[in-house]
């Protein structure tokens, strides 16, 4: 049995603004508990990384934040998740997901044109006044996702013909076109080559000015490079959470240290 000293020196002091507050979160898949009493505060306009070995519950945890877990009928959620102090289960899930966007592990553009991929969410939420306005918002999102220069001449081309890295940036553009407050990244680079990965990482750095970011990764170097806070999850327990630098240089918990030094994982 793993002895866990959950250290919540959560960096919640007066001047820091908490965007998402996870309290006593427990998640079961039928009889198996995958998230065990997790408490976590996500600070506004910062990058919070969730690391841990495969099967530790990282993806489940991030999917609970925008209620994508609702799509899995076996999943049962206990505890509360607050977005700006409001319980996410008191909100309409479509509105919640407009406020909390998500980028998935595998790039998943729709089998439509590049333009239509971005326009999709804008149309769903009726977020444009005119055709020009729609075009302008698509352009803005593609620019923010650093994809505009590569695709500006072929917006009507089929999105699935783009490279994997471009597809992932298209998915990011599609997500931020809705001007969400939070963007969740679920291992966004695991299917990409190193060059494409660097581009996505730079983009995430850039995005945190405007968005609160939570990223799941099993790549520790990635977490070290781009995140402000790191949460180490192991077998559904939040083992350690704190400023990234502190976690990586002076981990408080033996488990964290062992994981970071590659003794298991």
């Amino acid at each position: 049995m793993v002895d866990i000293v959950t250290s919540h020196h959560s960096p919640v002091t007066s001047k820091k603004e908490v965007k998402i507050s996870i309290r006593n979160l427990n998640i079961w898949y039928q009889d198996m508990q995958v998230i065990k009493n997790v408490n976590l505060d996500v600070e506004k306009n910062k990058v919070t990384a969730i690391i841990g070995p495969s099967g530790c519950g990282k993806s489940t945890l991030i999917k609970s934040i925008n209620r994508m877990l609702d799509m899995i009928p076996e999943a049962e959620v206990g505890g509360t998740i607050l977005l700006d102090g409001q319980n996410i289960y008191d909100m309409d899930e479509t509105f919640l997901r407009k406020r909390i966007g998500m980028v998935f592990q595998m790039p998943n553009p729709f089998p439509k044109s590049i333009f239509e991929n971005i326009a999709y969410g804008l149309k769903i939420h009726k977020m444009f006044k005119s055709k020009q306005d729609l075009y302008f918002k698509v352009e803005k999102a593609l620019k923010q996702a650093a994809l505009w220069d590569e695709v500006k001449d072929k917006l009507d081309k089929f999105a699935l013909d783009l490279s994997g890295g471009q597809q992932q940036r298209l998915c990011i553009a599609r997500c931020i076109a809705l001007e969400p407050e939070v963007v969740l990244f679920d291992e966004p680079c695991s299917a990409l080559d190193p060059v494409a990965t660097v581009k996505i990482e730079e983009l995430i750095e850039d995005l945190k000015k405007n968005y609160t970011i939570v990223i799941v990764t099993h790549n520790m170097q990635q977490a070290a490079r781009i995140s402000d806070y790191t949460a180490f999850l192991y077998l559904g327990n939040l083992v350690e959470f704190g400023p990234t630098q502190k976690i990586f240089t002076t981990p408080q918990n033996k488990m964290t240290e062992h994981y970071l030094t590659g003794k298991f994982g």
Binding site: T94, P109, G121, I124, C175
Partner: peptide
């Protein structure tokens, strides 16, 4: 999934 995640 992509569609639901965009709030559709």
């Amino acid at each position: 999934e992509a569609s639901y995640a965009l709030g559709a």
